[in-house]
């Protein structure tokens, strides 16, 4: 199964638990070293986005994490928000792959960018993989339809 498929499995798990459906996996030398999905409602923490959840798991388990992350790739089902993206740029993660842009909070290119965060010498490679675009948007739509069936998708907040 592809790494993006793995990330989507977590996003679907988030949806089943009434969380904003975003999931991610961190990959090092071809192996998944951590994964996470949005759990802001579960642990009542507004920063518990998929990427932060996955990084916080590694903090406990991986010594020398900074070095490992600089050699790692992130597969995430939606463009990381400004908070997560700024953190990932600071860490200098090797590669970020995502299939859908986030026009309200997107921190890679949609709203924020490494330049806006004044992060110097950014080496992160960004891959926009549109193959999974419909699936990503479809999940978000399912989530927001449940929340409020009358609100048009582009008016809603996406975490």
């Amino acid at each position: 199964m592809s790494f993006m498929e793995e990330a989507f499995k977590l996003a679907e798990e988030a949806l089943e638990n009434n969380e904003v459906p975003v999931g991610c996996v961190f990959v090092h030398n071809g192996k998944i070293i951590s994964s996470g999905r949005n759990e802001t409602n579960l642990i009542k923490d507004p920063t518990a986005h998929a990427e932060m959840v996955a990084i916080r798991k590694m903090r406990r388990e991986i010594p020398d994490l900074k070095q490992i992350l600089q050699e790692s790739e992130l597969y995430v089902t939606l463009e990381p928000c400004i908070m997560c993206a700024a953190g990932l740029f600071e860490l200098g993660i090797k590669k970020i792959v995502y299939p859908a842009k986030n026009p309200r909070f997107g921190g890679i290119e949609s709203v924020g960018s490494a330049e806006k965060y004044r992060v110097e010498n950014v080496k992160t490679e960004i891959i926009y993989d549109s193959k999974y675009n419909d699936r990503s948007i479809g999940l978000l739509k399912d989530f927001y339809d449940r929340e409020n069936p009358f609100c048009p998708l582009d008016k809603r907040k996406i975490k």
Binding site: P46, T47, C81, I82, M83, C84, A85, A86, G87, F89, E90, F105, G107, G112, K116, Y117, V119, K159
Partner: peptide
């Protein structure tokens, strides 16, 4: 605050 912290404070309202 940096981008990460400033946005965390937005998420925290």
């Amino acid at each position: 605050p940096c981008g990460m912290c400033a946005m965390a404070l937005v998420h925290a309202r």
